[in-house]
Amino acid sequence: MSNTYYLQSHEYARIDGNIAYVGITKYAAGQLGNVVYVDMPEEGDDVAFGEEFGAIESVKAASDLFSPVTGTVIEPNTALVDNPRLVNEDPEANWIIKVELTEPLNLEELLTEEQYKELIK
């Protein structure tokens, strides 16, 4: 049983107990091209399901990032500040924010891995 959930806007949340690792999918990273900047919230900021929490930018354009979970940011991935291209290299290992959940997962609206794979087929 997979512990990763997705939004249609191509963010994932990998769930580990009460913690979610949030990033963008391999598919989205491929579509974006080389990432040159990641705009992310700070430690202690709140994020809410379906709401914008930052942006990811290629040379050409900025794309908003939407949160698949509701909670508090306990760690932004600051390695991406100096090396945003880590997102292209391995978007699943290089999550963008680590969130402590304050509300249960919105399983009604989140996509399962199977559903997400169907979406990008």
Partner: peptide, 10 residues
Amino acid sequence: LELLGPGIAR
């Protein structure tokens, strides 16, 4: 303009 903080001015 040169930005003095992080971000890209679009």
